[in-house]
């Protein structure tokens, strides 16, 4: 498939550039809009180059963005989102790595039943079970709390399943060598299995962090206290102001800020992320 023809090179580059434009244009427009002054965006033509209000807009978004719309500053919402995303990612990994360990390495009655039960819940995403989950969370008094935001989303079939598949590829000889070396179940898990799953955990962390960060419906339902609003909810709230035009540049600046943490996570863990998805370090 490696051919060196001039027109073919041009064609492939053109296709790639087109793809890039499709993906990047909305991001660019968001950035441009976040640097414009209050009225500039509404009047056609829509500007394609950044304006001069960059610092002012971002400053306003961070300090008092929603305050004008009767809410909390973006900083608080970013923090809430961070807590939620981290809680979900870390919680999911912790729970599922332990349950996968139990399913793969221990022989107990109804082991496969348990596995299939977990597997079946793959078919039940948050939205499907949202009403009963809300009922449970509310009777436990967890509404308007970080626990209520994170715990119901932590139980995860996907991650359990992935860890199970990974553990099955770990050679039995490691377990046997560890047994001879006098490592019990906890030591084997901590000293050998967890370090071996490092790259898988990193890859899952990236995916789950973004999953947690992007949650919209669930935080909308369990939080009524605006001090617990997440950034994704907050942006929506900023758009639906009554009686006046939404302040688009501030909304766009907030959107840009909301995109930064996931980007940072991806960049920071990129090396491990790719490794975890591509190669199996054995």
């Amino acid at each position: 498939m490696v051919e060196n023809r001039r027109w073919l090179n041009l064609l492939t580059h053109a296709v790639l550039l087109l793809g890039l434009a499709v993906v990047a244009l909305p991001l660019w427009m968001t950035f441009v809009a976040s640097t414009l002054g209050p009225g500039e965006l509404i009047n056609p033509p829509i500007p394609l180059l950044p304006g001069s209000h960059l610092l002012a807009n971002y400053g306003e978004a961070l300090s008092s963005g929603m305050a004008r719309a009767g809410g909390v500053p973006v900083g608080t919402m970013l923090f809430n989102s961070l807590v939620m995303a981290l809680g979900i990612a870390v919680g999911k990994i912790a729970i599922s790595v332990i349950s996968a360990y139990a399913i793969v390495y221990f022989r107990f009655p109804f082991r496969m039943t348990v596995f299939w039960l977990i597997f079946v819940t793959l078919m039940l995403p948050v939205e499907v079970r949202i009403v009963p989950t809300f009922q449970v969370v509310s009777s436990l008094g967890m509404l308007n709390s970080y626990a209520g935001l994170t715990i119901p989303l932590i139980a995860s079939a996907t991650a359990t399943f992935l860890f199970r598949q990974f553990f099955l590829t770990v050679p039995d000889e490691y377990l046997e060598a560890a047994r001879i070396d006098g490592a019990g179940p906890i030591r084997f898990f901590r000293d050998i299995l967890l370090p071996l799953s490092r790259t898988n955990m990193a890859a899952l962390f990236v995916i789950l962090f973004i999953y947690g960060w992007n949650q919209y419906l669930w935080p909308l339902i369990v939080t009524t206290d605006e001090h617990l609003y997440t950034i994704v909810m907050g942006i929506k709230g900023m758009v639906t102001v009554s009686d006046e035009e939404p302040n688009w540049p501030i909304v766009m600046a907030t959107s840009m800020l909301a995109m930064l943490p996931p980007v940072a996570v991806v960049i920071a863990m990129q090396r491990l992320f790719v490794k975890g998805l591509v190669d199996t370090e054995k």
Partner: peptide, 21 residues
């Protein structure tokens, strides 16, 4: 007895060295 209590040591065919250590 568990393997560790038997006072034996084993060399495996594929060595089974812990790759991260």
């Amino acid at each position: 007895l568990e393997p560790a209590q038997r006072d034996i040591a084993m060399v495996f065919q594929n060595y089974a060295l812990y790759p991260h250590m």
